[in-house]
Design a protein around this nucleic acid. Structure first.
Lengths: 217, 217
DNA sequence: TTGAAAAAAGCTGTTTTTACCCTATGCAAA
DNA sequence: TTTGCATAGGGTAAAAACAGCTTTTTTCAA
């Protein structure tokens, strides 16, 4: 008899990816997929009807309740559940952001299945799984000694709305009209966001926001 | 005995997605996955060593040889093979673009497995599979009677390089330096791309390029 | 091979939009 | 009261956008 299977859940808004991954992992005979969910809110519902998983594979970009928020909720309400972030993005900010939210590891969707299985087993056994991808970011984060850099950036509703409208062919004046605000107010939002994102141009802002999965296009 | 299985191949640069999907589809008992590939070039190699598939599931964004190019190659060299585009993107341009390149259908990765299986069976039987997503775009394309709008936009190497550098915090002057060209020449590229993409600002250009999967960030 | 045509690269402007200052008001919470 | 905030303003400099034109390079057929 082998070691007992690891019970997991998969939270991701791409149905095909979720279901395909579930089959793939089940076939490894080392992992048991208890359930899967479309987003954080869906996961919370399904947690009630299922045994508590050892590990939850968590996407970042999801409608309604995203990976950051869901991970924070889990650490608040079920701290014994390990979260393994699973994302397409290899930028600093989402990685550091998910780890800060409470994820114990971070894997790319570009990974091989065998590596993902190791990561799941690793995180189930030790509550964390540090691969090269993550350790590099962590190291760089320390070496740069602005340790809390690259954190998820807190935006209020208007800033977020503005950020979305920024991802377009609209001028700031047109954006101001659409938000029923003075162009000067818009200019304040712009200034604030440039500082938060450490950029110097609207294009830089848009690219950063997309890389951090704060907005979708 | 049922109808014979449909032989397919999967071309996608995300290993986990590809393998997971292969397992998922195999389990349906109606589909047989002959092989999978990382990108178009990889697919061409593997085509030699395998039976010709009935249907190829094709991602759009891939390194080395993308979905558009690969589909065109297939239609040129193996016109009897049906291509079903499988992408995250529901914008007009990638959809129309893949169809124009020769794909017989277009499915979202957000689809349910059962729908994907129907699409594969449909396209194997009839060489095309038109769902609501696609028919809407086609209809709109006809109604707007600029029928060849939303086609993939042809860019030369310098324009593409410029476009990539545009997706950054760099000024045009800095981009000119990096490309060892005069800022005036860069201005010509900008002008040309604005016309091709029908935009009025660098931000609009960047967003369009991303939506059309001409560049990645 | 040559020279006409086309494409690519470069230049001079002007106008509009962005980016970056610093200040001020109203309002609500501490 | 004070603090913090969202809002709004004026002014300036830089960058981006737009237009019209010249030179260089490439291409290809006579």
């Amino acid at each position: 008899m082998q070691t007992p299977k690891v019970n997991i859940a998969i939270v991701d808004d791409h149905t095909l990816f979720r279901q395909g991954l579930a089959h793939l992992l089940t076939e490894s005979n080392e992992i048991n997929v208890l359930f899967d969910a479309d987003n954080g809110a869906d996961m919370i519902k399904k947690l009630c009807d299922n045994a508590l998983p050892d590990v939850i594979l968590m996407d970042i970009t999801m409608p309604i309740m995203d990976g950051y928020e869901t991970t924070r909720w889990l650490k608040e309400n079920h701290p014994q559940v390990n979260v393994l972030a699973l994302s397409m993005f290899e930028e600093d900010k989402p990685i550091i952001g998910m780890l800060k939210s409470g994820a114990g590891g971070y894997m790319l969707k570009q990974s091989k299945a065998a590596d993902l299985v190791s990561a799941i087993k690793g995180i189930a056994a030790q509550s964390f799984y540090i691969n090269e991808l993550v350790s590099g970011k962590l190291l760089r984060n320390i070496q740069n000694n602005h340790p809390v850099k690259n954190t998820p950036i807190g935006l209020n509703n208007n800033e977020l709305k503005f950020l979305e409208l920024c991802c377009s062919d609209l001028t700031y004046k047109q954006i101001a009209d659409m938000m029923n605000l003075s162009p000067h107010t818009i200019d304040n939002y712009r200034e604030a966001l440039f500082q938060k994102f450490e950029v110097k141009s609207r294009t830089g802002l848009v690219i950063s926001a997309l890389k951090n999965e704060l907005i979708k296009i």
